[in-house]
C-alpha cells in the first residue's frame, strides 16, 4: 500500500504548515479522503489547541511518498459530507 502524508495547514506561509513526518499506509485516494475527514472531525470535536482558534479554517494538504500533492481536504468539508452521502 502506498504511504500518504497528511500535512496540516493551519495558517499562511511555511510556518502555517505542520508537516507530517510519519504518514499512513492507505489503499488510494478514496481512503485518503475518508481518513482526512475522520481525523478532521475528531480534531474539531475533541481537541482544544490554543494555537488553532478555528479548526474550520484548517485543511489537510496530502502528499505521496515523493512529496507530490495528492489532494487538499478542507476541514469545512466535514460539514457537507453527510449531505452528499
Amino acid at each position: 500500500m502506498p504511504r500518504y502524508f497528511f500535512h496540516l495547514r493551519h495558517g499562511p506561509g511555511p510556518d502555517g504548515l505542520a508537516r507530517d513526518p510519519e504518514g499512513d499506509d492507505l489503499t488510494g485516494p478514496a481512503e485518503v479522503r475518508a481518513r482526512a475527514l475522520a481525523v478532521a472531525r475528531d480534531l474539531i470535536v475533541r481537541t482544544r489547541l490554543h494555537a488553532v482558534p478555528d479548526w474550520f479554517a484548517c485543511a489537510f494538504e496530502v502528499t505521496d511518498a515523493q512529496g507530490r500533492p495528492v489532494m487538499t481536504v478542507p476541514f469545512s468539508d466535514t460539514v457537507t459530507e453527510d449531505d452528499e452521502a
Partner: peptide, 15 residues
C-alpha cells in the same frame, strides 16, 4: 489525540 494534533503542537513548542 489525533497524530496531526501532536505534530502541530510539537511544531509550536519547537517554534
Amino acid at each position: 489525540v489525533q497524530r496531526a494534533g501532536v505534530t502541530l503542537t510539537l511544531q509550536n513548542l519547537e517554534g
